[in-house]
Amino acid sequence: MVVMNTGTAHEIRQAKARWGELDEDDGDDLDFLLLPPKEVIGPNENGVKKVIEYKFNEEGKKVKITTTVRTRKVAKARLSKQAAERRSWAKFGEAVNENVGESRTLVSTEEIQLERPKAPGSSKAAKPEPLAPKNNATYIKCRYCKGEHWTSSCPHKDLFQDTEVSEVPVSDNQTPGASKTTYVPPGLRPRADKTEVRPRRDENSVRVTNLSEDTREPDLRELFLPFGEVSRVYVALDKETQVSRGFGFVNFLRREDAQKAINKLNGYGYDNLILSVEWAAPRPN
């Protein structure tokens, strides 16, 4: 018998009108007379049984207690007559001398699951191809060069910079609605002063490759500091293992210092490895 949930107690506030005349002292003994009898409903086809009881709580109030119980037959291993008899067989062979301490049988402490090769319900076909373009039609289009790549990574960005600045005010004047059809993030919105503010990360950035695994950012800073003021040092680490991936970036405040560092350190032996130092991004000239 398994108790699934033990019940809900309803308090019934009832004026003790008639029974109030009774003496307080012998009230306890007469409880069973004053309370409705115990009621049992069920069990129904699901084995759910309801028992309704009444009693007084310590404040003297009458309380109705409904207990819902589900009775489940715990599947008892159905043993055949012979199997039941075999259960009582005497042990023989080496099993006789087995003492409890050196048990041959133990239950695994590890919970073993039936490991599914894939999550249930998902199949290869169910995975939708992300916005697959129909018959070679591209859905990525660069705003600068109309090529098949994201605008932000356009290799010809700098070439288009000037024309764009001159174009946009014109379109704004003629068709104000048209320019609003596509959302342009604020950082990419054309502005007159944009040519002056260049992305900070690209500034005089030097790429250092063939670093040894033990090289950390302070080491790199120490190495590059003699050439000039360094604004940023970054060593790429593997996301999972936190081991250096063998390359990093150093940003200089001045371009001349960066060039100096490249000239000096490219091919420099550092920690048993020959460093390769070059400009980080290919610069259009």
Binding site: R104, L106, S108, E111
Partner: peptide, 9 residues
Amino acid sequence: MRPILMKGH
């Protein structure tokens, strides 16, 4: 499931 390990051999 927790398997039962039997070391008789």
